[in-house]
């Protein structure tokens, strides 16, 4: 600030470049980023976040902590029970925003934080992080509008065909010759004296017997293009799900808090699809394009060739899935 500009500022306000900070504030740029917040559409109890933990995994300084919400029966509700971000650790890199498939976490413009408690004062809980979509519109109109349009398109796409995970479930029996994706069946006991190759062959054989045996509904001739079939008859779905309790959301291994070792322990001797299901990240985040059981079934049926789509499960899941597919002799894209 020169004397010339100071005098000039009495005639032209723009020449006064100094902003009198606490009273006046500079409007931040739309793209400005500081710390993340969580977006909700209707009310703060219904966040867009589905607690898939992708951001928790991807966050470089590991400042996010998420716990999944459950109802009284212990079933997962797709909402975070705990969603903490430690603002003292967060470096504002925006990786969580880019990683989120649900547009649930966005960067805020807020930059005035101070707290007398240095340990937990800036540990933001879900309550403090939740902000409305209207607020998002007020700080970043361009991005918010783009997100709204995209979400509306996705919702419209979802509404028209049958709900996304279902078709895969319906199609699984269609690939009956492939090993063991349907129905309860005879399994080779673990202590039976067979080599792994023999075991695989036997399992395959038994599963074919099980499908072909009378009393079971024959494989419906659904669309061969699994995963994308949209006109699957609902009549077939219901019995499939009822018949195989292992491929439902109530399965005991459908629990992201159990580690992969104990999950795999629960499914010993079960068919391939069930084993794959247990190997998934179990958060039903749908980042792969399916829910957990849908992805497992698509993989087992050979409809999905990419074994490394599971983000919450990361390397552990990818390695396990490849191992299982190798054992069963199902082809995939390495």
């Amino acid at each position: 600030m020169t004397a010339k500009n100071f005098v000039g500022s009495y005639f032209d306000k723009d020449r006064m470049t100094t902003i009198q900070y606490p009273e006046e504030r500079k409007e931040p740029e739309q793209n400005y980023r500081n710390f993340p917040f969580l977006v909700f559409d209707k009310d703060a109890d219904h966040l867009r976040c589905v607690a898939c933990k992708i951001c928790e995994t991807e966050c470089p300084p590991q400042c996010i902590y998420i716990e999944v919400m459950r109802d009284e029966a212990g079933k997962i509700i797709k909402q975070p029970k705990v969603f903490d971000i430690d603002y003292t650790v967060c470096m504002g890199c925006q990786i969580c925003v880019e990683a989120c498939p649900f547009d649930a976490i966005k960067m805020d413009h807020e930059y005035e934080f101070a707290h007398e408690n240095r340990f937990t004062g800036l540990l933001m809980s879900k309550r403090e992080l939740a902000k409305s979509n209207d607020y998002f519109h007020s700080i970043k109109p361009a991005e918010a509008t783009e997100v709204d349009v995209r979400l509306a398109e996705e919702a419209a796409k979802k509404k028209k065909p049958a709900p996304a995970p279902k078709p895969t479930a319906a199609v699984v029996p269609a690939v009956a010759p492939k090993p063991a994706t349907t129905a309860p069946m005879i399994t080779v006991p673990d202590d039976a004296p067979f080599s792994p190759e023999q075991r695989v062959w036997l399992q395959k054989f038994l599963s074919q017997v099980a499908v072909a045996s009378p009393g079971k509904p024959p494989a419906p001739t659904g669309a061969p293009d699994a995963g994308k079939a949209s006109d699957a008859p609902t009549a077939v779905e219901a019995p499939t799900e009822e018949e195989n309790p292992d491929l439902t959301n109530d399965a005991p291994w459908h629990d992201p808090e159990k580690d992969i070792g104990s999950r795999m322990g629960m499914v010993q001797g079960k068919p391939l699809a069930v084993k794959l299901y247990a190997a998934m990240g179990q958060t039903d985040c749908t980042a792969c394009g399916y829910d957990c059981k849908g992805y497992a079934m698509a993989l087992a049926a050979g409809a999905e060739k990419d074994p490394s789509l599971c983000v919450p499960g990361a390397d552990e899941t990818a390695a396990k899935v490849k191992e299982l597919l190798d054992q069963a002799g199902v082809k995939y894209n390495a």
């Binding site: 740029e29 793209n31 400005y32 980023r33 504002g92 890199c93 925006q94 880019e98």
Partner: peptide, 21 residues
């Protein structure tokens, strides 16, 4: 830099195969 990438010094702007914004 701030208008484009959101950060004045910590830009975090490039991505594999292009740029972020």
């Amino acid at each position: 830099f701030e208008a484009v990438s959101g950060g004045r010094m910590m830009c975090n702007y490039m991505r594999f195969g292009g740029v972020r914004v």
